[in-house]
Design a binder for these strands. Structure first.
Lengths: 110, 110
DNA sequence: TAAAGTAGGTACCAACCGGTAACCAGGAAA
DNA sequence: TTTCCTGGTTACCGGTTGGTACCTACTTTA
């Protein structure tokens, strides 16, 4: 039963990995990050076009969540019409790297 | 619009990363993998005890999914009562490594 | 004899989640 | 004048998801 001690330390209630996973695991989320990393800072409308099939509502939800967790930044210019640009933060780029590693595994998998 | 060409190649409809994420993103899934990697091959009953709070039904669902995708193996011994042991496959261990990398990022995050 | 442990299966139910459609402001174009 | 564009918000609706409870069939333990 020494194992349990390890586990107690290793998986506290609010496991950080769990946080990240809950953040990323909503539909479209990784797709959005991918596009942002390929495309650089992108406006809402262009994102909606690049992430084919996503609805405005869900796109906004995802971006808000990612922004709240410091994965993307949001740049709002109060022009008319307003211009809002989203891009990866430093953390976002780190995460993107980790996701690419996972994708590499996924690809040589079958 | 040269960007779109890149994206077309980079994100095919069935993006492998998406597959992995849908597989892992159910509740409890990463927790199960974590316990399996800490504990080595483990029986159903012990898993249910180690993954505190999970129901038998969900545990079985997750293990079936992970088995179907070659992330865990299932060893069934038709004794009475039967003895069923689950453990990480080679792919499962690779995935576990990738998850640890993500956790490292999550930890120094804030 | 009754309870508990083995590894699940099944039915039901509430909560959540994503999609659709309508709507907002203000300005530009037809 | 009506439509479209910007970047959203809101109400509603249906499918999926996870949780609870109860069942199997056999053995061991109290």
């Amino acid at each position: 039963m020494t194992k349990d001690k390890h586990l107690d330390k290793a998986i506290p209630k609010g496991c950080p990995l769990d946080r990240v996973f809950r953040l990323l695991s909503g539909e479209w989320t990784t797709h959005i990050l991918w596009v942002l990393s390929q495309n650089g800072p992108t406006r809402h409308g262009e994102l909606r076009r690049l992430v084919e099939g996503i609805s405005s509502k869900v796109l906004t939800d995802r971006l808000r969540m990612l922004e709240a967790n410091d994965v993307v930044f949001r740049d709002y210019e109060p022009t008319v019409p307003p211009k809002v640009t989203y891009g990866l933060t430093a953390v976002g780029k780190e995460l993107d790297q980790a996701l690419r590693a996972m994708q590499a595994i996924a690809e040589h998998w079958t």
